[in-house]
Computed example of a mutant assay.
Amino acid sequence: MKFCSTCGQAVSLLVPPGDNRERYVCSHCGTIHYQNPRNVVGTVPVWEDKVLLCRRAIEPRYGYWTLPAGFMEMGETTSEAAARETLEEAGARVEVQNLFSLLNVPRVHQVHLFYLARLLDLDIEAGEESLEVRLFEEHEIPWDDIAFPTVGQTLRFFFADRQSGSYGLHTGDVLRSLRDG
């Protein structure tokens, strides 16, 4: 960041009084520009014994498979954002259920949240950010072509919970690189 979004003057990186970390601060108007992690929200859309995945039509990880998810917008709840992203990426209408996984990805300043979701019908189609969408049974999941570690981990949690018959909330930190899948 070079300029203040409030007044347009140059900013400096310093620790403001009473704070414990460097922030961009405008010496002209005094605005402190806090930079916080971004929420990526999505769903684990389920139809009978299958999970809906999208093949990415955008970078990063073009051509790899993912759960429908994306950045939360201002004015949305996390569940509203998850339903919107599922509709945008997979043309899928869902009933959003409970929060299923919350995974911190500190190296890219993100928190990924996935909700369990029930597909309301099979009227699905690839959106602008997807090359294709498809329902997969567990043994069909393209594990070597999963786009992001958080998606792979969420799918592993889902299939383990389904086998045990009890779905819980899963949390943790993902420290691997994007290329680790």
Rank of each mutant, 00 (worst) to 15 (best):
L87N: 10
H33R: 00
T6G: 08
S27D: 12
Y34E: 04
H33K: 03
F136M: 04
R55L: 06
L178A: 03
E80L: 09
G172Q: 10
D144W: 07
C29K: 07
F157D: 10
T86A: 14
K50Q: 15
P106W: 09
T171V: 14
F114K: 06
H170E: 04
V41H: 02
P37Y: 10
H33A: 00
L119P: 04
K2I: 11
A82N: 07
H112A: 11
I32H: 05
Q163P: 01
W47G: 02
T150V: 12
F136A: 03
D144S: 13
M1T: 06
V11L: 05
R23C: 08
L99E: 11
Q163Y: 08
A69Y: 00
E138M: 12
Q97W: 11
T31P: 00
N20C: 10
P16F: 07
L178W: 08
S166G: 00
I32M: 04
I124Y: 07
E22Q: 13
Q35C: 09
L119W: 02
L178D: 03
V46T: 13
L103F: 12
C4G: 05
V51G: 05
L13P: 07
N98F: 03
F100Y: 10
W47A: 11
N104Y: 13
V96C: 02
D144R: 13
I124P: 01
E22H: 10
E138Q: 13
R38A: 11
F71H: 12
R93M: 06
E95R: 15
C4N: 04
G70K: 06
L155I: 03
E88M: 14
G30S: 06
V105C: 05
F71Q: 14
T31A: 07
T43K: 00
F3I: 06
F159S: 04
V25T: 15
R38K: 13
R38H: 10
L116V: 04
N39S: 09
N98H: 11
E125G: 12
V105H: 06
A90N: 05
R107K: 15
C29L: 01
